[in-house]
């Protein structure tokens, strides 16, 4: 609110008072042509009023109009001494490794909770068109635009692929989760039928087939239990 009022006042003053004055002063200040442009300003001469130093009458004159607002605006929006937030630009490898690290920690915890409750846990890395090869023409159209969107010099597809690869590798190397991980990224890469409705989600047929593969895991485990 203060800034709004001040800005309004300033614009009025600038246009009505300063602008004509500056025109007048500019006319009087037409400088002569010299053979050089070296000028030395004397900054040692100034006069001090209310802890402000003025090095020329003109700046003092301008400041008189601003003076009423000095107290009002002082430290209204403290920005200078506030620390800036870190702007982390990240390469695909950095994004991949950091997100994988966080996901891995979460999955380990879920696994631990499942173990305590004697539940069998499996992580299925969901199918994604940005990473899997598009199997139909429609698939190609769906993923094409976003895959090639550039972020900091890398395509979105590069980020996705790097992340998926990193996550797969981390999971495979993990002692606890290695055997509880199934990669579903490319389960539809061999069919010629449409399974995806968009790069991430499946239609009813795709969901049914996905369920079939999941049930396979469950049934295999059931067999092991019987033995």
């Amino acid at each position: 609110m203060k800034f709004f009022l001040f800005n309004l006042y300033l614009k009025v003053v600038l246009l009505i008072i300063f602008f004509p004055l500056s025109i007048i002063l500019n006319i009087f200040n037409l400088k002569k042509t010299n053979n050089n442009n070296f000028r030395k300003k004397n900054y040692k001469k100034y006069f001090k009023i209310f802890k402000f130093r003025f090095y020329s009458p003109l700046s003092f004159f301008i400041f008189i109009f601003l003076f009423p607002f000095v107290r009002l605006l002082k430290f209204s929006k403290l920005k200078l001494f506030k620390p800036k937030r870190i702007n982390i630009r990240q390469t695909p490898k950095q994004v991949a490794s950091l997100v994988s690290y966080r996901v891995l920690n979460n999955l380990r915890l879920i696994n631990k909770i499942s173990d305590i409750n004697k539940t069998n846990y499996t992580f299925f890395l969901q199918p994604l068109l940005y990473v899997a090869k598009p199997s139909t023409d429609i698939d190609k159209k769906l993923m094409q635009y976003i895959s090639h969107q550039m972020y900091d010099g890398f395509t979105y597809q590069t980020y996705c692929k790097e992340f998926y690869n990193f996550l797969k590798e981390s999971l495979r190397q993990d002692e606890e989760l290695g055997s509880k991980f199934k990669d579903f990224t490319k389960i539809f890469s061999n069919t010629n039928d449409q399974r995806f409705v968009d790069p991430v989600h499946l239609g009813s047929i795709g969901q049914y087939e996905c369920a079939k593969l999941i049930s396979q895991t469950i049934k295999d485990n059931e067999k092991k239990l019987k033995l």
């Binding site: 600038l14 402000f52 003109l58 301008i62």
Partner: peptide, 23 residues
């Protein structure tokens, strides 16, 4: 001041910043 009115916007921006903190 010298380059008014073209400098109107920048002038107000600068004054805001200076009266707030930089002075």
């Amino acid at each position: 001041f010298k380059y008014l009115p073209k400098s109107l916007f920048q002038f107000s921006k600068a004054i805001n910043l200076w009266l707030n903190e930089k002075l």
